[in-house]
């Protein structure tokens, strides 16, 4: 006999008794709990969520007001400060804390000011990709037929382009590569992931009886899409988008490292990593600190994504 255990469902059945009791008196004691509310209650108790959200909050603060954290300029170099002079680790927050780079600029100040580029790219690309990709996926999934066929083939074509290679080609065609050019290049190629997730979710949800019920009531397409399908399809999209955000930040750094993304005088971790490689033997700290920051940031978003995934879909645990 195959050892098919139905225990998972058994547990569910055992505890899936309604929270509303037969006895009326208890009716008032229990609060209305939405699925989002449940997810939030779950999130708050998740240590991964706590750690990652503190990190992300800090990053956002730093990128919005870098002046709060350092008074030193990230671009003004003074060759008085040699990059071989030892970082003074005891002087937390001072310009000399993490040492100086080859041009005598404070590594700490560059770290703080470089945050903005990374965070901006991450958030902007994710926002564009979620809106554009989500919309495409929703249309393709809901309407199906020829609309779906056409949109899905377009998605497939873009999906077929290697992400970094494609971004390089796009960037090559711009003379001046600002943060927004990088955002454009990444979003141009990145939307397909969200489209696919959204399309799959919508196809499942549009067959749910509550969508049929809304149609039977005479609900129009807009109402069905935005009241019934979108709120239920959002969960997987949010998860994928959060994890992808970390990916976009590392993609920006990679492109900058290769000299195709941001370039000096823009301050960015990728630019600094690229510059630090040259002195890796003599002054590893120039490379080390931006790399640590980059990894921490990416990690924070991946952790947040995982925590959100667990909260939104408890069955995955």
């Amino acid at each position: 006999m195959p050892d098919v255990t139905k225990t998972a469902t058994a547990v569910e059945d055992a505890v899936a008794t309604p929270s509303v009791d037969a006895s009326e008196p208890s009716a008032k004691q229990e609060k209305a709990r939405s699925l989002w509310g449940d997810a939030w209650a779950d999130l708050r108790r998740n240590p991964y969520f706590i750690v990652s959200s503190i990190l992300i909050a800090l990053l956002l603060l730093v990128s919005a007001w870098p002046g709060l954290f350092t008074s030193a300029s990230p671009t003004a170099g003074d060759l008085v400060h040699h990059f071989l002079s030892k970082p003074e680790l005891s002087k937390v927050g001072s310009p000399e804390w993490l040492g100086y780079d080859g041009q005598g600029r404070s590594v700490y100040a560059r770290l703080i000011h470089g945050t903005r580029a990374s965070v901006t790219v991450g958030i902007a690309v994710t926002a564009i990709v979620t809106i554009v990709g989500g919309f495409m996926g929703m249309i393709a999934g809901y309407f199906g037929g020829i609309v779906d066929t056409v949109l899905s083939r377009i998605t497939d074509i873009f999906f077929g382009i290697p992400f970094l290679l494609g971004a390089m080609v796009v960037l090559q065609s711009f003379v001046e590569r600002t943060v927004w050019v990088v955002v454009f290049a990444l979003a141009f190629l990145g939307w397909t992931q969200i489209t696919r997730v959204m399309r799959g979710a919508v196809i499942t949800i549009k067959q749910a009886d509550y969508v049929h019920a809304a149609k039977a009531l005479g609900a129009g397409t807009t109402r069905i899409l935005f009241k019934h399908i979108l709120p239920n399809a959002m969960a997987p999209v949010i998860v994928v988008a959060t994890i992808a955000l970390g990916g976009y930040i590392s993609a920006e750094a990679t492109l900058s490292f290769l000299g195709l993304g941001l370039a000096a005088p823009t301050v960015s971790w990728g630019v600094d990593i690229s510059a630090g490689v040259a002195q890796i033997r003599v002054a590893p700290h120039i490379l080390l600190w931006p790399s640590i920051m980059l990894s921490l940031t990416v990690l924070a978003f991946i952790m947040l994504g995982e925590a959100v995934r667990n909260a939104l879909d408890p069955k995955l645990r």
Partner: peptide, 17 residues
């Protein structure tokens, strides 16, 4: 549902999680 009839059977079979 929820009466425990299936859980008892799973305990007998030893396939309870």
């Amino acid at each position: 549902s929820g009466s425990g009839k299936s859980v008892t059977a799973q305990a007998i079979m030893g396939i309870l999680d």
